[in-house]
Design a protein around this nucleic acid. Structure first.
Length: 114
DNA sequence: TAAGTGACGATCG
DNA sequence: TCGATCGCCACTT
């Protein structure tokens, strides 16, 4: 499973999300060269190797909702981590209009170097 | 080989 | 905004 070469590409893309910003699963899939494979992104986040620090909590659903049910341990942790970066989380949801990451060409080129 | 399963997305009511 | 539905696709059983 973690042999899948696409996973590494996905993790690197997630690493390129700047602090204080968030991205959707579909957006990550697109940037990683896997358009339409949002579900694969979700899976890969569950397989992040422990020796890699990936800001998985900056990835949300396309609606801005957290991927986990409100009140779950994971959701509370994710909410805390996002608020530490000044991202407002209200009722298990983030305002994408204010916090969604919009990659610039420079950021994309930087990502490709990694 | 077929059926079940998801940290999803778009659409509809 | 919310839940139900369907389409989607890699992976598991």
């Amino acid at each position: 499973m973690s042999h899948n070469p696409h996973y590494k590409q996905i993790w690197q893309t997630v690493c390129a999300i700047p602090a204080g910003k968030v991205a959707s699963y579909g957006q990550i899939a697109d940037l990683a060269g896997l358009p339409g494979r949002a579900r694969l992104v979700g899976k890969s986040l569950g397989y992040i190797p422990s020796d890699m620090s990936v800001p998985w909590y900056r990835v949300l659903r396309s609606s801005g909702q957290l991927a986990f049910p409100k009140g779950s341990e994971q959701a509370m942790k994710q909410t805390g981590l996002l608020q530490d970066e000044n991202v407002a989380v209200l009722s298990n949801r983030v305002k994408l209009a204010s916090f969604q990451w919009q990659p610039t060409l420079e950021e994309m080129l930087w990502k490709l170097q990694q």
